[in-house]
Computed example of a mutant assay.
Amino acid sequence: MIIDLCYQEFLDNLISEENVSSSTIKSYKTDFKVLKSFLLKNNIKPLLDNIATPVLRRYISYLKIQKGYRTNTIRRKIHSLSSFLNIF
């Protein structure tokens, strides 16, 4: 499955059923853009099946080393991604 379509479905679900705040949606969209950028830079096709543990470990390293994010920001991005992946 193409990750973009799944993510939009995830966001639509959050908005309609979970009634999350607009700032949460905005943060989740930003988190997704960072993930997608990572996938493209590493020549990983943006498909759900390609989001496996080794890729996630590389993504976390990317967030810390290349992007320079602090621990709390990385945790939020992981939580955002985890919420998405738990649905699919």
Results as ranks from 00 to 15, higher is better:
residue 54 P to V: 10
residue 9 E to I: 05
residue 50 N to K: 11
residue 38 F to K: 10
residue 57 R to P: 00
residue 86 N to A: 04
residue 86 N to C: 02
residue 17 E to R: 10
residue 43 N to A: 14
residue 71 T to Y: 14
residue 42 N to S: 08
residue 72 N to Y: 14
residue 39 L to V: 07
residue 61 S to T: 13
residue 49 D to H: 10
residue 29 K to V: 02
residue 5 L to M: 08
residue 49 D to P: 01
residue 6 C to K: 14
residue 5 L to E: 15
residue 41 K to T: 00
residue 3 I to K: 05
residue 26 K to H: 06
residue 38 F to W: 09
residue 9 E to M: 06
residue 82 S to K: 14
residue 86 N to S: 09
residue 33 K to Y: 02
residue 81 L to M: 15
residue 78 I to S: 05
residue 25 I to A: 05
residue 87 I to E: 13
residue 31 D to F: 00
residue 10 F to T: 05
residue 88 F to R: 04
residue 1 M to K: 08
residue 55 V to N: 04
residue 66 Q to S: 09
residue 41 K to F: 00
residue 34 V to P: 05
residue 78 I to F: 14
residue 38 F to D: 08
residue 23 S to I: 10
residue 17 E to I: 02
residue 19 N to L: 04
residue 48 L to C: 05
residue 9 E to D: 11
residue 2 I to L: 13
residue 52 A to K: 15
residue 51 I to Y: 05
residue 57 R to M: 07
residue 25 I to Y: 07
residue 7 Y to L: 08
residue 58 R to F: 03
residue 67 K to C: 12
residue 24 T to R: 01
residue 27 S to A: 13
residue 77 K to N: 06
residue 86 N to F: 03
residue 72 N to R: 15
residue 18 E to C: 06
residue 59 Y to D: 12
residue 65 I to F: 08
residue 8 Q to W: 02
residue 59 Y to F: 15
residue 39 L to P: 03
residue 60 I to W: 01
residue 31 D to L: 01
residue 85 L to E: 02
residue 88 F to P: 03
residue 63 L to W: 07
residue 39 L to D: 05
residue 7 Y to C: 07
residue 72 N to P: 06
residue 45 K to W: 01
residue 52 A to R: 15
residue 14 L to M: 14
residue 47 L to I: 10
residue 58 R to A: 13
residue 66 Q to H: 10
residue 85 L to V: 08
residue 5 L to W: 05
residue 85 L to T: 07
residue 87 I to N: 11
residue 35 L to S: 07
residue 27 S to Q: 07
residue 78 I to M: 12
residue 61 S to N: 15
residue 66 Q to Y: 11
residue 13 N to K: 09
residue 28 Y to L: 12
residue 5 L to P: 00
residue 53 T to E: 14
residue 25 I to R: 03
residue 41 K to W: 01
residue 71 T to I: 12
residue 8 Q to S: 04
residue 8 Q to V: 04
residue 61 S to W: 00
residue 57 R to A: 04
residue 22 S to F: 09
residue 9 E to T: 06
residue 55 V to C: 04
residue 10 F to W: 03
residue 31 D to M: 03
residue 52 A to P: 00
residue 61 S to L: 11
residue 27 S to N: 13
residue 10 F to N: 03
residue 12 D to M: 02
residue 13 N to E: 10
residue 30 T to L: 11
residue 26 K to P: 00
residue 75 R to P: 02
residue 87 I to Y: 13
residue 20 V to I: 13
residue 18 E to L: 00
residue 11 L to G: 08
residue 73 T to D: 04
residue 42 N to P: 09
residue 16 S to F: 11
residue 61 S to G: 12
residue 47 L to C: 06
residue 25 I to K: 04
